[in-house]
Simulated assay, not measured.
Amino acid sequence: MIRRMGRPGLLGLAARTAVVAGTANAVSGSMQRAQAQRDAQQQQAALYQADQQAAAMQAAAAHAAAQAQYAAPAAPAPTAAAPALDIVGELQKLAALRDAGVLDAAEFSAAKAKLLG
């Protein structure tokens, strides 16, 4: 076969065009997949952040409710037998709130001191 010098033939031109088009298609597909992955990660991060904000709001509401419950003015002292049972029950409630993470150690100590007089 005789080799031609100069411009490529029709077959060579078609082959070069196919290679360029295939490369462009592969790069484009790769870029689209990477963009879709970035979008999915951003959406996942936004959902995680929304979940964290909702959990923080629920914790704040529970904390405020616990503080409001123990910030109420003290009722007059009942009879001698009733306060011991009341105090024990209230201390158990406070301990449960502390264990659940609603009250921190300082708030628990303050509420306990208020309860014990």
Score class of each variant (00 low, 15 high):
Ala18Cys: 10
Ala40Leu: 14
Ala24Ser: 06
Ala71Asn: 15
Ile2Trp: 14
Ala62Tyr: 01
Leu11Glu: 14
Ala71Ser: 14
Ala40Met: 03
Ala66Met: 02
Tyr70Asn: 01
Ala26Ser: 08
Leu85Cys: 05
Lys93Asp: 05
Gln58Lys: 10
Ala26Met: 14
Arg33Ala: 11
Ala15Thr: 13
Gln49Arg: 15
Ala113Lys: 09
Pro76Arg: 07
Gln52Ile: 05
Gln35Thr: 10
Ala66Pro: 01
Leu11Ala: 05
Ala55Val: 08
Glu107Leu: 03
Ala34Leu: 06
Ser109Glu: 13
Pro83Phe: 08
Ala46Ser: 11
Asp39His: 01
Ala24Phe: 04
Thr23Lys: 04
Ala64His: 10
Ala75Thr: 02
Ala111Gly: 01
Leu85Thr: 14
Gly12Tyr: 02
Met1Glu: 11
Met1Gln: 09
Ser30Met: 07
Arg33Thr: 03
Ala45Glu: 11
Met31Phe: 08
Arg3Tyr: 13
Gly12Trp: 02
Tyr70Gly: 01
Ala72Asp: 08
Ala56His: 11
His63Ile: 02
Ala81Met: 12
Asp51His: 10
Ala62Val: 03
Val20Ser: 07
Ala71Gln: 13
Thr23His: 04
Ala84Phe: 06
Gln53Lys: 06
Leu11Asp: 13
Ala81Cys: 05
Thr23Trp: 11
Gln69Gly: 03
Leu13Tyr: 04
Arg33Tyr: 10
Thr17Gly: 10
Gln37Ala: 12
Ser109Pro: 01
Val20Tyr: 13
Leu115Thr: 00
Val20Phe: 13
Lys114Asp: 06
Ala66Tyr: 00
Leu115Asp: 01
Ala34Thr: 09
Ala65Asn: 15
